[in-house]
């Protein structure tokens, strides 16, 4: 690698094994200019949104060409989704002299990721992992949920009411203005629920990204979509709750 190139680290691995978790750990320790690139994310940038809320100063790349323009002081983390073809990314990764890190379960059988990686990092050990056969992604921007409905949906989703699920991750806007990230991996105990470090949205339907990604086997996509639609609060209900919250928050601040 020439001295003028940035440090590039590419991360790959199975769904739910902990790629984003590993990147977040690295970002929390890294110094200097930090960049994040998640190719193929399309219009459902769940991991990107989560990382940006946790690391507001991180700079996000949207095109691989941008990597070539970075200085040697920059560190770029490229997270490759499990559904991407590793071979198709090889040319670019070679060109930028990327270090290849595969996040894999402890004791994972020999796989393409082993052959691809310069370094294997131990990720989550997932019991009873089932090879996924479909990926469902949906933008939920503008939808607002009451927590009880969202919990009910998430419980049913992760308990296989709509088909066997391997992995589910979503960012949802709640009626109290907060945005939360729900994260589920089959075989790990329970889901994780994280509030994102974003401002409370109390002025109508949020104009920021929210969405869901479900990886599974023969999941009923229509039923998932319909249930999410059934959870969406009406404009009138949102306005009512937001007015109450503004009044309550204003009272607290005044007090």
């Amino acid at each position: 690698m020439s001295v003028s190139q940035p440090t590039v680290i590419a991360i790959a691995g199975a769904a739910g094994v902990g790629k984003t978790t590993w990147v977040r750990q690295q970002l929390s320790q890294a110094t200097g200019d930090r960049f994040y690139f998640c190719p193929g994310v399309g219009n459902v940038p769940i991991d990107l949104t989560q990382i940006m809320s946790e690391f507001p100063t991180i700079q996000v790349l949207t095109e691989q060409q941008e990597v070539y323009q970075l200085s040697a002081q920059a560190t770029v983390y490229i997270e490759l989704g499990f559904h991407l073809d590793l071979a198709s990314a090889s040319g670019f990764l070679d060109a930028v002299a990327a270090k290849r890190v595969a996040v894999l379960p402890l004791g994972a059988e020999k796989s393409d990721w082993h052959d691809w990686a310069d370094q294997v990092v131990e990720g989550a050990t997932i019991a009873n992992w089932v090879e996924p056969s479909h990926l469902q992604r949906a933008v939920l921007t503008g939808q607002v949920f009451d927590p009880a409905s969202l919990n009910l949906f998430w419980f049913e989703l992760t308990e296989a009411a709509y088909g066997q699920i391997c992995r589910a991750k979503g960012i949802f806007d709640l009626v109290d203005g907060r945005a939360v990230c729900f994260d589920f991996v089959s075989g790990l105990s329970g889901s994780t629920y994280t509030e994102l470090n974003l401002h409370r949205w109390l002025d109508g339907r949020p104009e920021r990204f929210s969405g869901i990604e479900v990886v599974g086997q023969a999941a009923d996509q229509a039923a998932i979509a319909q249930t999410l639609a059934d959870c969406d609060l009406s404009d009138a209900a949102i306005a009512h709750y937001q007015a109450q919250l503004k009044q309550s928050l204003g009272t607290e601040e005044a007090g």
Partner: peptide, 9 residues
């Protein structure tokens, strides 16, 4: 109805 989803159902 403890939730909107329960109410719709």
């Amino acid at each position: 109805y403890p939730s909107l989803l329960a109410e719709r159902r």
